[in-house]
Write a protein that binds this DNA or RNA. Structure first.
Lengths: 158, 158
DNA sequence: CAGAATTAAATGCGTTTGCAAATATCCCGG
DNA sequence: CCGGGATATTTGCAAACGCATTTAATTCTG
């Protein structure tokens, strides 16, 4: 089967090797990163979608919910429910868009910024561990490649 | 708040910028990659955990379930149930380990290889799109950095 | 070598998720 | 300016998930 595939012109996962297949490595790394963070978040009454919404909102002002869903990498229905909770806890506010009453803009509150501030050190620590021993120029090249990849994904919209 | 953080010596997410924060970019990219794949998988009666198990098993022979969980980046309890389904569909076989009767080794069947073969082209296509326009040496450097990162998180076990 | 502690895997259970459908609003062609 | 189609968000619902616990077997310790 593997041989058939290769003859057809498409190298199989076996030929590439798990440890050389970038999407595998990225899932593996982010799986750990996210699982680690989730444990920390639980102690603060946060979930991954809630934290991601706060993270984006700490940087982007008053996006529409559908934009926030893209930035935060959360399904819109999941985000909708996460925002219910965040609003109930006073960490964000929803406001109907001025020019389009279907749409909703989301604002972070001071309490929301404080909540994100409380987890940021753990995120930064996980980040630091991840890149430990990797020199600055290599980090920059890595991020530059990621940015190209994001551009590709956006363009092709998958 | 942001200023307080910086004064304390820790740059905030605002200073770094979402688009320069590697974990954010990686989550963003893999979020799309995984969501896209999930849609393709649904048509084949597969879920992400089932596909990941098959992917790893197509490359690693007869791992223990706990090893498979690590390689496949799936919670052990989730994997246990995914394996129930895969076994029911004849795509894998579970076998008690010879030297330790608590442990179970998992084997992929020919049908399992075929099932993975059916989705691999889509995975490969998503991979190709992701790295479109990125030259070979840059890809190699990127993967090398990922391998270092995986080493870091493994060593520190988070 | 008994029994405590550890490890592997499966399972119970409440929560979360994602898809699809519903609801509400907007935009455009005729 | 009316109706059909598009768009923004929410919600219903069944499936999936993850944590904690259970069951079973192994290993360590005194």
């Amino acid at each position: 089967m593997t041989d058939q595939r290769r003859i057809a012109g498409l190298p199989g996962l076996g030929e590439i090797g798990l440890g050389n297949f970038a999407p595998y490595l990225m899932n593996r790394i982010m799986g750990r990163y996210n699982a680690s963070l989730r444990a920390d978040l639980a102690g603060l009454g946060l979930t991954t979608p809630k934290m991601r919404a706060l993270a984006v909102l700490s940087v982007i002002d008053a996006p529409l919910i559908r934009e926030l869903a893209v930035y935060a990498v959360v399904e819109q229905s999941t985000l909708s429910r996460a925002l219910d909770q965040l609003a109930g806890e006073g960490l964000i506010q929803r406001e109907t868009d001025a020019g389009d009453s279907r749409a909703t803009r989301v604002h972070i509150t001071e309490a929301g910024r404080a909540a994100f501030g409380a987890i940021w050190p753990q995120m930064a620590a996980a980040y630091a561990r991840m890149f430990q021993g990797i020199p600055e120029d290599e980090r920059r090249a890595f991020v530059a490649t990621l940015q190209k990849m994001l551009g590709n994904i956006r363009k092709h919209d998958f």
